[in-house]
């Protein structure tokens, strides 16, 4: 049973259709990647999920129930453009935002100090946000997003502006939250992070879902049947009609296997030629490559 189900969600603005029959499902306790170029409709989709906007048509199921504004308290949303009151003290701000999410004042206060301790910013509790460094206010923003123990956490570019240490800290926290029962939607342009963190992704372009599935399934779906062969000594002489060479450099050869042939055929050929193979790998396209070809391909149509 999926935690969040969007079914043919449509949102129109004055002249444009920002979200065009978007459907996807997010399984509970997974990290779900939402990808797409700027203006693809990611933010609008997120705003529909967070009940900031209502869909013109289509349906959203949250934890099995039709989405209502009451569910907003069970969600935590960190927008890409971070938002905090600059003049407010860190702890006051966090308590305020937690209370708006339905926490009691006392509960919020205790929770705020626990998180600040965890993130090593306890000494800054009484500072104004404008006095914090960018990384520190990022942490505050993250705390604000998760303080009320939301069931669904939506993070838009959570690592932008963070140094590797803090990036790791946040990454570990996201993983811990997932283990403790939260479902996470993660919107980003940074494909290597998606490959590393997400189980399932969708790719949105111009309001439409153009890819939807597991990360490795998608990579296999778009593979070009290319293999990398590292060798020592004599280079293999491969028949161009069956195994055309894409490129060769430094004792490494990238070879494409044509249709009707398989990896076994290629290996047999290498063995026959007595090539000293050091490594043999299938080359899967990166999400980045898929992203670019898909987005460009669609826009050329």
């Amino acid at each position: 049973m999926s935690f969040l189900i969007l079914d043919k969600v449509v949102k129109n603005f004055a002249t444009t259709r920002a979200v065009d029959e978007v459907s996807f499902e997010v399984k509970p306790q997974t990290i779900f990647g939402m990808l797409g170029p700027n203006g693809a409709g990611k933010t609008t989709t997120i705003r529909i999920i967070t009940t900031i906007l209502t869909a013109d048509s289509g349906s959203v199921l949250f934890n099995g129930q039709p989405l209502t504004e009451l569910h907003a308290e069970e969600m935590g949303y960190m927008p890409e453009e971070r938002g905090l009151y600059k003049k407010m003290k860190v702890w006051e701000q966090l308590v305020y935002l937690a209370q708006l999410k339905g926490m009691s004042g006392r509960d919020a206060k205790r929770s705020v100090f626990e998180w600040m301790e965890k993130f090593n910013i306890k000494d800054w509790w009484n500072k104004r946000v404008e006095e914090l460094s960018k990384g520190m206010s990022q942490k505050v923003q993250f705390i604000a997003t998760v303080i009320h123990r939301p069931k669904l956490i939506i993070l838009d570019e959570p690592f932008s502006g963070l140094d590797p240490i803090n990036s790791n800290l946040i990454k570990e926290e996201i993983e811990a939250l997932r283990k403790n029962g939260a479902t996470i939607i993660f919107s980003t342009h940074r494909m290597e992070q998606v490959e590393e963190i997400c189980e399932n992704i969708i790719l949105i372009n111009k309001g439409k879902v153009i890819l939807n599935g597991g990360v490795s399934a998608i990579r296999h779906q778009f593979k070009q049947n290319e293999f990398s062969i590292r060798y020592e000594g004599r280079a293999p002489q491969l028949p161009a009609d069956r195994f055309p060479v894409v490129r060769t450099e430094n004792q490494e050869m990238i070879v494409k296997i044509e249709d009707h042939f398989s990896s076994i055929d290629l290996m047999r050929e290498l063995v026959n030629q007595e090539v000293e193979v050091k490594s043999y790998n299938e080359i899967l396209p990166t999400l980045n490559e898929i992203f670019i070809t898909q987005v460009e391909g669609k826009s050329h149509e």
Binding site: T51, A72, Y77, E81, G83, L84, L97
Partner: peptide, 17 residues
Amino acid sequence: MEEKKNRIAEVITSSVK
């Protein structure tokens, strides 16, 4: 304007109308 500029409006409107 401050709330809009800070983008806090987006955080708050995900909690209240």
